[in-house]
Design a protein around this nucleic acid. Structure first.
Length: 114
DNA sequence: GGTGTGACCAGCT
DNA sequence: AAGCTGGCCACAC
């Protein structure tokens, strides 16, 4: 994962998100070494569909647990339905149990690398 | 092949 | 306390 580009690292981390769990753009950006590049993590998701392997971009939301990128899934309700099918509780494009479902790569993955 | 721009976040005013 | 701004990087046109 060290040789990969910024985008590729994003895709790697997103694929590691366990089903039913979610994380934030900022958490991913921080994990791959560019804490202030969270903005481009979102853009990486935009190109995620070009990847040959599926990237569960629906498990990535903003810091507030809000489904900011729902409109990029081919339909405004797709992302919501995907998350709900995995156990998330969503109301008004907001994950209510975001705090419980939040999966921090720097906490979960860094432990293995220490 | 250069340039705009994009699904964010935190720090200042 | 709330609003604006800067910053970061690679894709698509």
């Amino acid at each position: 994962m060290t040789d990969l580009d910024f985008f590729d690292r994003v895709y790697e981390v997103v694929r590691l998100i366990p089903p039913g769990r979610v994380t934030s753009y900022g958490a991913i950006a921080k994990f791959i070494g560019s804490p202030q590049a969270s903005r481009f993590v979102g853009y990486a998701m935009n190109g995620s569909h070009t990847q040959s392997e599926f990237v569960p971009a629906h498990r990535v939301v903003n810091r507030n647990g809000m489904l900011t990128g729902k409109h990029h899934f081919g339909g405004p309700e797709i992302m919501k339905q995907l998350l709900e099918s995995e156990g998330a509780i969503i109301e008004n494009d907001q994950i209510l149990n975001f705090k419980e479902l939040f999966w921090d790569p720097t906490r979960e993955l860094m432990q293995g690398y220490l």
